[in-house]
Design a protein around this nucleic acid. Sequence first.
DNA 1: TTCTTACTCACTATTTATGGTGAGGCATGG
DNA 2: CCATGCCTCACCATAAATAGTGAGTAAGAA
Lengths: 238, 238
Amino acid sequence: MSLNKLVNMQESLSHATTLEELQRAAETIRDDYNVDHVVYHWVNSVGERFGCGTYTSEWVDRYLEKDYLYIDPVILGCFHRFDPVNWKQLDWSSKGAREMLRDACDYGVGPQGFTIPVRGPKGQYALFTLADSRSDDEWETFIEEKKKDMILVSHTFNQKALELEERVFQLEAAQLSKRERSTLTLLAKGKNRAQAAQELEISENTLRVYVESARHKLGALNTTHAVARALAAGQIVV
Amino acid sequence: MSLNKLVNMQESLSHATTLEELQRAAETIRDDYNVDHVVYHWVNSVGERFGCGTYTSEWVDRYLEKDYLYIDPVILGCFHRFDPVNWKQLDWSSKGAREMLRDACDYGVGPQGFTIPVRGPKGQYALFTLADSRSDDEWETFIEEKKKDMILVSHTFNQKALELEERVFQLEAAQLSKRERSTLTLLAKGKNRAQAAQELEISENTLRVYVESARHKLGALNTTHAVARALAAGQIVV
DNA sequence: TTCTTACTCACTATTTATGGTGAGGCATGG
DNA sequence: CCATGCCTCACCATAAATAGTGAGTAAGAA
């Protein structure tokens, strides 16, 4: 029964500490849920991409070689979505996208798919994907049935990916001070230094010190860069 | 049984189309799962805050009046987390935080709590929270048992919140041109106009036109503002 | 207590950004 | 064909940001 599979999988994932173990977890899910492919792909907080799962290395090479990353409706579409998506709902109208899908099928991927996008606290962005070749109706039914399981599984994957990442970049978290955050927040809202200083009831000179120190902490080259980094790092919210 | 409750709740939520309905859904969960409070709080893509749930208006007023938003370890801590968190695991070491918790208990909130952070595609940030007054052990057990349900419920809440948001800001999506996006992306990476122009192999004057037109499209007051908005709107990625 | 971190302010010359306008070329779609 | 939007470039005066250092106060942690 589905619940048991889920529990087993989460049990095995809860001990995953390396990329290889995530890989094996993906294979386990593929077998337990009887789908062609299970893939987890993520972009960490410094923009590096990782992937693991059951796609063949031939398909992965092909995908990268053809720059499908910048064409793939799954990647592009999910970036603007929160909710899990059946590939059929995506926009396959462009020529490049249709070519890619044909190509994918030749490599044993698709045409059915189900992808769950997830976002982390520091701009991390991940996709948990199931791919299969059954019919539209069968796939619809399958998704309906397994969707909840898959949301939970994708959560567990993400947690593991974030743990991996934290272990690698051990908390380089440049912590901004309260005033630095307030300053960058106001600048991100379009205020200039004079206005921001007035709003914070400090002199413009003081405010400038905050901008500078924030810049240094964030390793930013100028104010705009600092704001972009602080936003991406989740240190400020506009 | 737990599964039935979940199905009922999701059934009722799936028809929610207003803030009031989300509110009622929160109340239903409170009653079905027998906890003191259920609260859903989110920040939309333009930085506006919304909340709904079972906190009393007295506590909400108190919370806002005392600026607890900037002290609350739940808000601050979850912003840097992906995984659901038992409040006990958060950092309550600051004086302000402890005061807040005492205050919250006086208003019937806590001391136990469980919060699930979720992020949307355009910088939306949401917290789904359960609060209760049972003992540490009882709470631990409760969470262990209901965690999966709650992750699924928080997903459903988020989906509804995003739908609400989309209905309100019906695709005011200022579409930037390719060059405008490239320009803002380079500026977000800390380049100045001269460097960015060189990288794009256009004159600095031309580049300035892109910055200006992007600014106008985004309704931004200056370059930094434009970059922040483009980032928040997912039009550029750093 | 002592040490650290955050917060506050000042000074000045130099570099950059801003705002608005005008204008030609090129592609697309009604 | 003509309108629209995109890409390209130029000019110029003014406003704003930048860089680096020095220094005092206050609060909190060790």
